[in-house]
């Protein structure tokens, strides 16, 4: 019944695992070693194309693109993980409370939620960053708030539908308390859509962080993120394409890996799919 880890693994788990694993190796490696100092300016060699000395070339200040991408991976991934974790935990909690208590609590929560949802997420994040200042913590907070409402909606919807299932009624009949039923029966069955949403959220956050950097309110220079690398590469798109290709490919591969792994994770967590 239980296949060994590899023989039963699906291709999406293997590819997703390799991509995300590779990303983690790069992030960890970035702590101990990068080919060059990522923020050391070398004005003698600006915009050097990829070569044996600069594998992925250098940027307009002569900084090594590979080193910057490695450090940028760390910052981008921390931000994305932070936002996903914060939004999922808070969103699940709020959504579950709304779906569980129903009545006026639900109505108040959902009204506020829908009001936030009505703002474009980016606009909301921009406003919050404008108030809180532009640093890593406030970016995580701002993006979490921007992405929270969609999680709340999904969780509440799932909770409302699961709580009408007969096995929930069965739990009530054997005398289980409402909170126990909620935690043991309703939430676990309401989570699969959240897992899927969380993985795509990871992708959106990496992109949003790039967009914020692009707009100039992201992680302040000289610290590199994939987003601000992309944004800085824009004027050189034609004659130094390696500047945008490197972070772009990094973002794309990360998204692919996380999405594949998310699908695999969802399948793995579903007891119905192990047969």
């Amino acid at each position: 019944m239980k296949p060994s880890m590899l023989s039963g693994a699906k291709p999406n788990a293997v590819i997703g695992g390799l991509l995300v694993g590779g990303l983690l190796v790069v992030v960890l490696l970035g702590y101990v070693w990068t080919p060059y100092d990522p923020i050391a300016i070398d004005l003698a060699h600006p915009l050097a194309p990829p070569s044996w000395t600069h594998w992925f070339g250098s940027d307009e200040f002569g900084r090594d693109v590979l080193s910057r991408a490695m450090l940028g991976a760390r910052i981008s991934v921390t931000i994305a993980l932070g936002v996903v974790a914060a939004a999922v935990i808070a969103g699940t909690l709020i959504g579950a409370i709304a779906g569980f208590l129903r009545g006026w609590v639900d109505r108040v929560i959902m009204s506020v939620n829908d009001a936030i949802l009505a703002f474009p997420g980016m606009l909301l994040a921009l406003a919050l960053i404008a108030v809180l200042g532009s640093n890593r913590g406030s970016i995580i907070l701002a993006l979490s708030v921007a992405y929270l409402p969609s999680i709340v909606r999904v969780v509440r919807g799932a909770v409302l539908s699961i709580r009408e299932r007969e096995y929930v009624e069965a739990s009530k009949v054997v005398g289980d308390g409402a909170l126990y039923t909620m935690v043991r029966h309703v939430l676990p069955n309401a989570l699969p859509p959240v897992v899927v949403l969380a993985t795509s959220l990871f992708g959106w956050v990496v992109l949003s962080e790039s967009a914020l950097s692009f707009l100039g309110v992201g992680v302040p220079p000289p610290a590199p993120t994939w987003g601000n690398m992309l944004s800085a590469a824009r004027p050189y798109m034609e004659n130094a394409s390696w500047l945008s290709v490197t972070p772009g490919v990094c973002i794309a591969l990360t998204l692919l890996g996380v999405n594949l792994l998310g699908d695999a994770l969802r399948d793995r967590l579903d007891p119905r799919r192990d047969a």
């Binding site: 007969e166 096995y167 009624e169 069965a170 054997v174």
Partner: peptide, 16 residues
């Protein structure tokens, strides 16, 4: 003291 058996055995058992 009082229990219930449901009609549909597919939805009355928690799949997890």
């Amino acid at each position: 003291d009082a229990q219930l058996v449901f009609q549909d055995p597919f939805s009355s058992l928690d799949p997890r």
